[in-house]
Amino acid sequence: MKRKLFFKFSAPSNLTMITLMLIPLGVAVFLSLHFVTFVNINTPKFVGLSNYAAILTDPQFWQAFRFSMVILIIAVPIQIVLGFCMALLLDQIRSIFRGVILALILLPFVVVPVVGTLMFKQLFEVGGLVAYWYRAVFNQPFLFTPTSVRVLIIIHLIWYVTPYPLVVFFAGLQGLPESQLEAAEVDGASRWQQLVHIVIPFLRPLLLMTSMILIMDMYRMFDSIMVMTEQNPMYQAENLMMYSYRVGMMVQRLGRANATAILTVLGVMVVLIPFLRITYKNQMRNE
C-alpha cells in the first residue's frame, strides 16, 4: 500500500488517538509543572520541576514504586505461565464442556473489578469462608497484616487477570496448524518437544503482546489495591496509582499527582522497551 493511501485510511484512528491520548498527556505535563489544587484550579501557579523533585525525594513514592515492581515481577510471569498452561489443558478438551469451563474460568475477569475484589476480600474477613477454614485448621484467626494483605493483593491479581492471557493463548492455539504437530509426532517428537519447538514459537507474538498488556495493567493497578487496603498505610501496600490518587485527591496536589502520572508513563515505557524492541525486530525480520 502506498504511504499516502495508508495515511488516508489511518487518519480517523490517528486523529482519535491524538485527541484521546496526546492532548490529555499534554495537559498532564502542563499541570505537572504547576502548583494546582481544587481551589486554584483556574489560576495554576508555575513551579517548574519542583513537583518532580518533591516526588523523587519522597520516601513514600519509592515505597509505592517498590510495591509496583513487586507486583510486576511476581504477578505477570505467574499470570502468563498459568494462563498458558490452562489454555493448553483447555485445548485438549474436545467435548461440549469446553465452552462451559471457558465461561467459568472467565468469570473473575468478567465481574466488575471492584465487586470482584470485594467478594474476594470478604472470603478472608470476619465470617468469611476462608477465614472460617483458616481458624478451623490453624485454630487462630486470619489476620490482615502488611504481609498477608500484600500477598492477598497479588493472589487476587493473579486470580482475576489470568483468564485474559488464557483466552488469548487459547484463541492462538486454535490457529495452530494440526499438520505441524502431526508431522512432529511422526518424526518421533515428544509432547514436550512439540510444545517447545512448535507451540511456543507459534504463540510467541501473542506471548509478547500479552506480556506488554499485562505489564501495563499491573503497573497501573488501582481498584484491587484500593478495595483491599482502604488506603490503610499500616499495610504498606500502596502502589504508584494509589500514591498518585492520594496525592491528587486527598492532599489535593493536582500538579504533583500529574507529575507522578508522567513519571509512571515514563516508567512503563522503560519497562516495555525490551518487549517493544523484540516486537520491532520480529516485524523487520518478517518484512
Binding site: 474477613e125 470476619v126 465470617g127 484467626p141 489476620l143 490482615f144 497484616t145
Partner: peptide, 20 residues
C-alpha cells in the same frame, strides 16, 4: 487484639448482633 483491628463498621455491627 489483632482480629479486632480489622473489624470494619459492618463487622462491628454484625459481630454484636451475632455474639462474636
Amino acid at each position: 487484639g489483632p482480629e479486632g483491628l480489622s473489624y470494619s463498621i459492618d463487622d462491628t455491627e454484625i459481630g454484636l448482633q451475632t455474639g462474636r
